[in-house]
Design a protein around this nucleic acid. Sequence first.
RNA 1: GGAGGGGUGGCUGAGCGGACGAAAGCGCCGGUCUUGAAAACCGGAGUCCGGCAAACCCGGACCGCGGGUUCGAAUCCCGCCCCCUCCGCCA
Length: 423
Amino acid sequence: MLDIHLIREETQRVRDAMQSRGVTVDLDSILQRDIERRRILVEVEGLKKQRNEVSRKFGRIKAEGGDVESMREDVRRIGERIAGLDAQLREVEKVLSELLLQVPNIPHASVPVGKDSSANQVVRSWGEMRDFPFDPLPHWKLGERLGLLDFPRAAKMSGTGFVIFKGPGARLERALINFMLDVHVREHGYEEVSPPFLTNAAAMTGTGQLPKMAEDMYRVVDEDLYLVPTAEVPLTNIYRDEVIAGELPIRLVAYTPCFRREAGAAGRETRGLIRVHQFDKVELVKFVEPEHSYEELESLVAEAEDILRRLGLPYRVVELCTGDLSFAAAKCYDIELWSPGHKGWLEVSSCSNFEDFQARRARIRFRRGGHAQLVHTLNGSGVALARLVVAILENYQQADGSVVIPDVLRAYMDGMERIEPVI
RNA sequence: GGAGGGGUGGCUGAGCGGACGAAAGCGCCGGUCUUGAAAACCGGAGUCCGGCAAACCCGGACCGCGGGUUCGAAUCCCGCCCCCUCCGCCA
């Protein structure tokens, strides 16, 4: 959420920012409600002041045994006007906050301006794309031959867009989760967290999933809970409505499954593991002092990259342009892995600085010089599974149909060095 | 799920219709003392919103959340949420 003062005082700047994102936001309507809100507020507060004064006098006179009946009716009438104005005020505030919740964050000055992903900029690449002496297979064929993935049976119980990992496939999944958690905890200074996988609407609103992304989430109607689309939600909401007592920065890492309806994605490039309704992810979240958030964004990306380097997977880092930036982000880098089977790039991480946008929504603050102020929040995938498995299977496939297991994972798989075809 | 108890400032915790934004302690900030620190002593400080260009100025709101009673609610009533204890159920 943007600061209403900013919208009020630097309207043109906000307007330009929205235009650079390619979104239309009714700022005039917001400004109008803001004026109306303050108009009512001034009036009702004046009346409350009157009421407070009279009530105090009332108590004093009554205590002294004086006549109080003549005042009673006057104060009651003031009370009625207050009630009417308060109702108006609530209505205006409700509309205003609904409008404000729909305004996306302002892109950082360094973000390239552009209208869609074609204007994103590759900032660096790492690793060599392997030159295959044979025609590399796509991951779903490898998964089938090696007996790692079972889509038909997953569809039987859960519908399309779900997968069963089995045998070494399930083992690989678990090995990757453990490997990534270990690196981030032992070497990058993160604290490990295992949060709830369902959260309420307030939490979803705090991080910005609601109201915009409602149709992309699974909802448990009876309990009014949502399945988390990313661990960003439970991790960031740990400090919702709090003034953080300890030292910043706070760095948290968690593994969670992620649930996404992906409504409207049918028919796109969705075969196999590329776009599934449930996938695993190791997520990194930071709470930092405002002046350090951009250095923390750079280290966040580096920490995610570190995972991919250790796995020996070629990747590139892409800086998103204004038009491709997600709702709450001020700046964002995607990390993409090369997929030889698809001959394309797969996004496995998205690292964003939200500045104080989420902190304002979720009221996450810290204390400085005795005063509470908003923190900056960041998060990034460190990294997302499913697609990572795609990249490993495809990049490490051999001419004989087997897949070599990356060195760093072998300790997590009882020393297994390769997965052999079963059919 | 049932019964009982409880939710007060950064924390602990008093207050249970009017002078309460709220005692006290801890913690925090500033000062005195000290070579420095600690201790001791003195002083200060809640959050949000609004008035305004701004304020150490003024006003309003905030004692889990929402509603009600009242001239007036942290205090009384109702609903909800959360925590604790016991019982039930259960991986």
